[in-house]
Amino acid sequence: MTASIAVVGAGPAGLAAATEAAAAGAAVTLLDEQDEPGGQLRYRIQPLTVAEGAHADRPARIAERLIDEALAAGVRFRTNATVAGCFAGLELLVVEEGVSSREAPDCLIVATGSTDLPYPFAGATYPGVFSARGLQILLNLHRVRPGRRFAIVGGAADAEELAVDIMLAGGEVVWSGIAPAPFLSTEGVEGVRGLTVGQDHHAVDVIAIAVGRQADPALATMVGTPLAFSTELGGLIPLVDGHLRSPIAGLFVAGDAAGVGSVAAVVAEGRLAGIAAASSLGLASDEEVSAVRAAGGPELGWRLARRAALPAISAQPYQ
């Protein structure tokens, strides 16, 4: 029987990992809880590069190419398939159309991406406050603008990208910036009406929280992968080696789930995890792994080196 590899998350990292592993000869299943593959490439619209030094392209076109490559390599796609848990022996609990099943692949690659960091200030739970990516999904995927006037809490790249997306969607960005949480308060328990920043009041309909992202390696941690901490990689990240291997046998973590980064970096990292997983099953040589690693570009090199220097944190919350 062919060695089986399950990849969870059909974003850029998962697509790249699945393609590489399938091209090496593994039977690869790519699971994603959304109804279509693509992950962040489905709802981001500003040009991105898929590899360092490559020409920038629209995320939708990058997704199309990555999906075509995966299909050509023989990856089996399963969308609307939520992997709700991972247990000893890499046994997965998969929920599809409300029916759960268990399966145990020989290798598991967790490419579950990242989630927006929360920012708790007064009224941050009121209707009309969205996470940055939640708002991008509404605007760019569902084509719904939840109000006219927007405020963005956050000051880095995520906030800038969101501000442009809002303006492209015909919204007005009334205020954007970062302030300590005690200086922010929201009016409108039944739906945002305004945001007060220090002494300044802004009438807004929607507030987006765009203070950054954090890795979401929950599937890897629930089966015992230790965590490390790195501010540059988005906080708590799973401890993986230079081949993206967790200390748990057969488990790999790649992409934003292993530390937030650019699309180019997570694609390169996905490819490395895919070939490394195939290699762990005897389907690829060490030279092939090294070649993929070398082709990954400087950001991948930096990520691998940065992680190699990190100790596991002393209090492991999930063990």
Partner: peptide
């Protein structure tokens, strides 16, 4: 949301209103 509704649910403990946040489930 497109139809102008803002409140989708109330929370169990204090009954405060929520209207969607992450949009990914």
């Amino acid at each position: 949301i497109a139809a102008g509704y803002r409140v989708l649910r109330t929370m169990p403990r204090f009954g405060d209103a929520r209207g969607g946040y992450c949009m990914v489930g």
